[in-house]
Design a protein around this nucleic acid. Sequence first.
DNA 1: CGCTACGCTGCCGTTGACGTAAACGTAAGC
DNA 2: GCTTACGTTTACGTCAACGGCAGCGTAGCG
Lengths: 149, 149
Amino acid sequence: MDTTAEAGSGRAEGGTRTAEPPGGTHTIAQVAEEFGITLRTIRWYEDQGLISPERRGQQRLFRPRDRVRLALVLRGKRLGFSLEEIRTILDMYDAEPGETGQLRYLLEQIHRRRAELLQRQRDLQQTLAEFDELEQRCRDDLGRLESSG
Amino acid sequence: MDTTAEAGSGRAEGGTRTAEPPGGTHTIAQVAEEFGITLRTIRWYEDQGLISPERRGQQRLFRPRDRVRLALVLRGKRLGFSLEEIRTILDMYDAEPGETGQLRYLLEQIHRRRAELLQRQRDLQQTLAEFDELEQRCRDDLGRLESSG
DNA sequence: CGCTACGCTGCCGTTGACGTAAACGTAAGC
DNA sequence: GCTTACGTTTACGTCAACGGCAGCGTAGCG
């Protein structure tokens, strides 16, 4: 087990026993803290193939790449994509330029996704506009109530 | 993509037996067709208090107001809001200008929701930008493959 | 009168995205 | 050697948002 000389150089500082992360990596708890999600959620994302942190024995090692992907996952979620969709999008990102067929497929995917996002953008604009209207109405009502009450 | 495999029959107005909609109203089936959702979904939305069509006896009568609300519901869904959230937003729309306290609360709500939407807008922009980048990469790769292969 | 088309109300099933709990491993520190 | 902190897996629970079906009503046609 300890045959692998770990990259953690002489750290051994004064007593912080917080399961120190080796190299430039992070523990699952640190990542969870950083992104404001639970350990369970992170493990779930791994199960779903959204991230695949390395292992030191059983423990997960989160490298920068994983944290970037995680950020993308969360942004995808904010945009309302399902985890499944997010995975295919992520797969799009790091697809190797294989054959032209695959590239064409990827381009088509991009177009489809973009169309969705543009629709969402329109929805967003409209809703924001209506919020503005609503707010104006509110302010009017408020002014009326204050001046007459 | 409708799940109900039901081919449209002869659609003659007036004399036929298509459970004629009275006044300027529509039947549940017509509304479902119009919005591309199922009857089940519409009833579910009513259960959740998102719409409340009138009744002629047992049957639902959909008036313009209901269809407007339904459109808002679907837009909200496209934006990724839960039905619960959508209901509170809808409630915001037709809140009576009661007391100033309520109005202030409503304004606060509007601000909160708007902040969310603005966040989403940023997410959207970023993702769209990355799609552009990705597409460019794809096109480059494609050109390279075609010219060298 | 029965058939058919359309509608209604339950109620259970399903899927996605986790939460929660149980039961355990392991390394640090006293 | 025991505790404590952090981690692991597996299994089951939950909540939203419906789908699907059962069982029934009813309006109009022939």
